[in-house]
Amino acid sequence: MGPPRPGGALSARLRGGAAALGAAGLSAWAALTRPFTAPADLVTALGLALVGAAAVRGWRRAPAALPSARRWWPWVAFGAVVVAWELTCLFLGPRVDHPTVSSFYDAATRAQPVKGACFFGWLWLGAALVRR
């Protein structure tokens, strides 16, 4: 491996800035869409494709070493309880009496800025997940 290229940090920052701008643009578009429509499918597909491409590009990179194990079981227990309660609400009816996560999400994202922020957060999460 040779010496670092001059301006490498700058180009990384520029790439990061461009990615953030692109994500903001996609999120603004997503905020205007409604589920079960072609524009919603398209903007979601674009997000999936971009993160999918980054995942394929980074595939061969070895994962970074992890620090030693901490107590992880509280997260697993919490996740299990959330999933169990979500499934309980899903199969109990009606939805107005037993809201699910989707019910809260639908109520919150009636405001377009909130929907855009959620879409941006989803893209950010995807970018974080493909960084090994």
Binding site: A40, T44, W122, G126, L129
Partner: peptide, 22 residues
């Protein structure tokens, strides 16, 4: 940390996006 886990987590992320936005 494993390839299977990596793909599974990404598929979970993809499902989240499809479910909530599409």
């Amino acid at each position: 940390a494993t390839s299977v886990g990596y793909v599974a987590v990404l598929l979970g992320w993809m499902w989240l996006g499809w479910h909530f936005f599409a």
